[in-house]
Design a protein around this nucleic acid. Sequence first.
DNA 1: CTTATTAATGTAATCGATTACATTGGAGGA
DNA 2: TCCTCCAATGTAATCGATTACATTAATAAG
Lengths: 330, 330
Amino acid sequence: MSTIQDVAKLAGVSVATVSRVLNNSNLVSQDTKKLVEEAIKKLDYQPNLLGRNLRRSETKMILVLLPNISNPFYSKVVKGIEKVAHNNGYNVMLCNTDSDAKRERMYLDLLKNHLTDGVIFMAPKIEKAELAEIGKNYPVVQCCEYKEGTGVPYVSIDNFSASYMAVKHLIDIGHRRIAFLGCESKFNSAMQRKNGYIKALEDHEINFDDSIVLYGDYTFNSGFSVGHKLMALKNRPTALFAISDFMAIGVIKAIKEKGLKIPDDFAVMGFDNISFTSMYDPMVSTISQPRYDMGRAAMELILKQLQGVQCNYEELLLEHELIIRESTVK
Amino acid sequence: MSTIQDVAKLAGVSVATVSRVLNNSNLVSQDTKKLVEEAIKKLDYQPNLLGRNLRRSETKMILVLLPNISNPFYSKVVKGIEKVAHNNGYNVMLCNTDSDAKRERMYLDLLKNHLTDGVIFMAPKIEKAELAEIGKNYPVVQCCEYKEGTGVPYVSIDNFSASYMAVKHLIDIGHRRIAFLGCESKFNSAMQRKNGYIKALEDHEINFDDSIVLYGDYTFNSGFSVGHKLMALKNRPTALFAISDFMAIGVIKAIKEKGLKIPDDFAVMGFDNISFTSMYDPMVSTISQPRYDMGRAAMELILKQLQGVQCNYEELLLEHELIIRESTVK
DNA sequence: CTTATTAATGTAATCGATTACATTGGAGGA
DNA sequence: TCCTCCAATGTAATCGATTACATTAATAAG
């Protein structure tokens, strides 16, 4: 493994000159530049970035914390982040937090130890105060899920109106008794989606009925068991809006097992538009988030912070979209 | 941001002593140790690992190259890798290669630039010679998909016998005309799974029929279109074995659209046991790979190489399992 | 009481780059 | 011809840790 010293020696110049060539300084004559480049090629020299990083006190590396890489929702967001990162000479380090604050803290040490230049949280679990503190000292952005009032900017969608749009769709196609499947999590999105549901009912003069407001944990299994509970009710709803596609699919599976036809006997709306929704039978109506663009926007916000530009807003909401498929209309 | 110098000054000792405390050297008296620890706490000091890494010429970071984080197959493998890595003081950097050799090379620069200590390939796309070359110079392991004869060890399953087992299951439940849905990729696994299919037919005196050997690209869509082609055949098979669950699900969807009942009219086997297989309707029979253990084994192989132990075998095959669900039997 | 040994600590080199500052030599102006 | 200026290059400090080697002081051995 050769170093900048070896290159300098072989080219017959000083290390400063080699460094200048490496960094495209215009303070090197064409002749010496050629000389150095030949030496680099001959030695198959690759700079040791540990040296550079130490000197420059930066790593060109961004940490992305996601609850779980197995969640297909995040893959496109990550693609967007990577796109912008690579265009700007940054690399991305993806890490599974398992939605565990302890693991988040473990990874945040990479920031404090100077091994990454910034962090993008996909769904922060650490306390608000902690997040605010980190945001004060390092470039940080939240993307998708977020905590408000921390001073750490976030990229997301308007979950309230997305949810409203979903429920209104169910109303528009004739449903009046619509169940809601949410999550009792601390995530803002869960609360906002519930509020959107309530408002849509209200605006269409449908009474809110607590007995058909149910909760799961975002997974297929929780949706599946809620689906069975639903079928056991005496005054059965005719439709359901779930705040995650996995739960919606779980409900659908349970309902089909009971012999009901979807969407004729029962309509289901999901949320997120994961790829599985268009593979399922029936294909699932849902809300699509502009995931790729959200990733890009988040990375751009990090870049701004790295350039020392302080972001003067905390919230950046992108446009969502209603996707109508077989689970709500024929 | 305080440095080791600041801590030394505050504690009234030299930087060497602080460093010794940081590294649990037993050459420090209890009293000074306490002094230093107090200074560290007071300053909220976190060592700058760029300095340490440069000096030690290691990063305690492992690069994991996967085709795409959205492929649910890999998530458990990654969990296994992370488990072993964390237990040994390593961090894991996940990177999307999009199955593109160029992107792989880009990430491999992180190795050459000393920013990671080793690499685990989930499905290498670079040339055999390139892989061999890298394996000569750095700790490298292949996991899941692999290239043979490169000197780079790999962790996988016996794809031939797994495939044999899958096809034998279809034969055992009475099928004699069994289609195969493979991939014309360079991956060994695709070829081996085809060979397992052929051997299973042979051993049970079923003629191999080229007209029901079809190809896709591992995706749902390719399975879906093959499913439709299949239904158009005059001498229709009664079962199909697909070498990926996504393709199997695509086939099932197409077949259901044609009004056939699964498994009564047609049986389908997949491969990988991704979580969707047990959410689908019908639930899909498949082959399960010990993904978590494969990840653990791969990381353990890397650790061995990092400790300078040369691995004297190239191949490590773990046990697979046949999972029988609704898509083959009632 | 002197010397050898060792535990505890300090000094300074080191990892491999970048970069402030110093130096050199040649072009151009007076 | 001499001086100024600047392009091109070199020297050495620097980033923040680790660690080989030096030093000190205390203890044990003779």
